[in-house]
Design a protein around this nucleic acid. Structure first.
Lengths: 214, 214
DNA sequence: AGTAACTAGACGACCGGTCTATTAATGATT
DNA sequence: AATCATTAATAGACCGGTCGTCTAGTTACT
């Protein structure tokens, strides 16, 4: 392994452990020391890899967003019967990942965990996350458009607006799930999503959704 | 002013300033020192008023939730034409408060700001916030039920489920607004809410499609 | 061998939450 | 009304951790 390859590996290792820790303790809640110790990297080396904690945060978010979008692209490229199924598979992933059925994307979502914190903390970090979300929503909108094109979804609200609305609903559901430790909010979001997708424009009637929360 | 009255006033002052600071810097992001200085209370006095920072956090959340629910009850008691208008006035408050039209409840919402942070930080704080949200959603559900009773809203999904779904949508919208600094997400939530409320009821004609998924 | 890439950890200034000792104010007892 | 006991409130030290800097040292490629 070449010198700079190893350096890159170290950098990634810091980012890896950092992501785990940030996910459970928040960005300001976790210290450099802790991240470094967990990565087996000495304290002093940090500022060789990153100019500041904030820059580290940006890199972390950037990497996360890229990974997320890559997973989405993989989903987009998958050979599935139709667009509607493809779209619904995306939402299913929030509930349960392919590997661990008990741990969906929602639990590991940095947007859920960091959006509120980062928005007031660092303009740079905010922008990285915000751009990521925008790209994400655009892809959802694309999926909706495709599903309509192949006839698996009916026409309705503009894809961009619908995508945004669905995403924010899921975001809220994930947040409430985190707070309540009860996943029914997410299951309800799933049901609501199905209903909303087949829902015509604002003026027309909307099909019912039935989600249960005791 | 009696001795203990003054003490209570001091306590409230700490809670007041604390809420402002926590709202913009997060719970771990703000230090006792800063809060105390802003309240004009000497540092050493903190542990006279609160047994710990966590207990302070619980008191903060408790007070916030109580205030929020009180505002809702005020709205519920208001003399308005019908239940639907009452409900929509509640959602309007998210967008713009009665005093400051540019600053709705969303911007000052501790649930938006703290839910993700607190959920992993302190079980006690988590529970206070979660119970508050549950009470809040119950009130929304109540409003829906009333609006249906007076005929201003059509029958539809169970009030509790609908209330929860709407609340999480608004939560997500507020989070995204914080992140993007763009209030269109909130306005969109408003439109979506109006559409969702007039959804037809559980259709006997339509088999429940959450069970019959391919 | 020379030079760049990388590691190492001590160090600084400051801030975190917590605790103990002390002063200030009050109410009770003579 | 003067003293005392008790409580309210404060001051400041405490230890550990924060981010960030700096310089000396080690490793590896040219």
């Amino acid at each position: 392994m070449s010198r700079s390859e190893k350096a890159e590996a170290t950098r990634q290792s810091i980012l890896d452990r950092g992501q785990m820790l940030v996910l459970q303790k928040g960005f300001v809640g976790v210290g450099l020391q802790e991240i470094l110790k967990a990565s087996g990297v000495p304290k002093g080396s940090f500022y060789y890899y990153f100019p500041s904690k904030e820059a580290f945060g940006c890199a972390l978010l950037q990497r996360y967003v890229e990974g997320y979008l890559a997973q989405m692209d993989q989903l987009l490229a998958a050979d599935l019967p139709d667009g509607r199924i493809r779209l619904m598979r995306y939402w299913s992933a929030w509930l349960a990942g392919p590997e661990d059925p008990a741990r969906g994307w929602a639990e590991d979502c940095l947007v859920v965990k960091l959006a509120a914190e980062v928005a007031d903390l660092s303009e740079d970090m905010r922008r990285v996350l915000n751009d990521g979300v925008a790209a994400l929503v655009a892809r959802i909108a694309g999926m909706i458009a495709e599903a309509r094109a192949d006839g698996s979804l009916p026409a309705g609200a503009p894809p961009q607006a619908l995508a945004q609305m669905l995403y924010q609903m899921w975001l809220g559901a994930a947040l409430l799930t985190k707070l309540s430790r009860d996943r029914t909010a997410m299951q309800q979001a799933f049901t609501a999503t199905e209903a909303l997708l087949v829902c015509p424009g604002p003026q027309a009637a909307t099909p019912n959704f039935s989600g249960g929360r005791s």
